[in-house]
Nucleic acid binder design. Structure first.
Length: 259
DNA sequence: CCAAATGTTTTCCC
DNA sequence: CGGGAAAACATTTG
């Protein structure tokens, strides 16, 4: 589920916790830094920000970083900012909780202010993680920055888009989506994608991501999960969408208008 | 039973 | 060093 768009939705939701004081912390030591349970209680949540797919909370001049892997999700004050679109009811079993933070919320002490729920345990909750390797954020991409990200790389353009050091926040769904809008085939070597095409790609990122964000996240594009999982005609030209493995991930694309 | 799944990270190889 | 493929992580879903 979580790409940069989901992280942004959760960041906005977690923002409602700013100013509260943490009263209690429970965590799964396998995927959350045990130091958190010593450090956080008694401290105030000062700010929340997002970098690529990472959401981080400023607490006592330290950073609590949340990375969600493939199946992590966030519940704030008992409510899911992202309604479960793909999966049914039991996507939120308590035994999948990896981090629970209680705050001094008046009248709602029983419900954790923040829960990270992650069945597959591929996400991590960490302290002061170094995010220096991250490339330009998805909401700040320009044609110029894509030229810098490509930097002569031979790897497939889609693989480059998924490389968080090049662009921070794109995941498998959004990468396919923006390539579809820009009319660029995913397997093309990055260095062979021309400047005008990179500009088109930057435009697709700038225009489409805010729309998908407003609609609810990375599953709300033209290449939604339904059209990814079956033989679906391209909504632009009717050609049957192709599914290929590129860089170890499934790429869905239209060989008719993506060249 | 088998394959695939929205994400990294590491390892091995050319 | 660049890059690619594959495996590992862990669990659910179709």
């Amino acid at each position: 589920m979580p790409e940069g768009l989901e992280a942004e939705i959760w960041r906005r939701s977690i923002e409602s916790l700013v100013g509260r004081t943490i009263t209690d912390v429970w965590l799964d030591e396998r995927v959350a830094d045990p130091e958190l349970s010593i450090l956080l209680p008694g401290e105030r949540i000062d700010a929340v920000e997002r970098r690529g797919k990472v959401v981080r909370l400023s607490i006592a001049d330290r950073w609590l970083g949340l990375h969600f892997g493939m199946t992590g999700r966030v519940v704030v004050d008992g409510a899911s900012p992202i309604a479960s679109l793909e999966y049914a009811s039991d996507r939120d079993r308590p035994e999948w909780d990896r981090l629970r933070i209680h705050t001094d919320t008046p009248g709602a002490a029983a419900v954790p202010a923040l829960r990270v729920n992650d069945p597959r345990r591929l996400g991590r909750s960490s302290l002061d993680a170094d995010l220096g390797h991250l490339g330009v954020d998805i909401f700040e991409v320009t044609g110029e920055s894509l030229v810098g990200a490509v930097d002569g790389r031979r790897t497939a353009i889609k693989t480059l888009l998924l490389d968080q050091r090049a662009i921070a926040g794109l995941g498998n769904l959004c990468a396919d989506e923006v390539l579809w809008w820009a009319g660029i085939a995913p397997h093309r070597p990055a260095r062979e994608v021309g400047r005008s095409e990179l500009d088109a790609l930057a435009r697709a990122i700038r225009r489409r991501l805010p729309i998908m964000l407003r609609r609810g996240g990375s599953t709300m594009g033209v290449l939604d999960p339904a059209s990814r999982s079956s033989e679906t005609p391209c909504s632009k030209d009717g050609a049957v969408l192709r599914r290929d493995t590129i860089g170890g991930r499934t790429a869905v694309w239209c060989a008719e208008h993506q060249r």
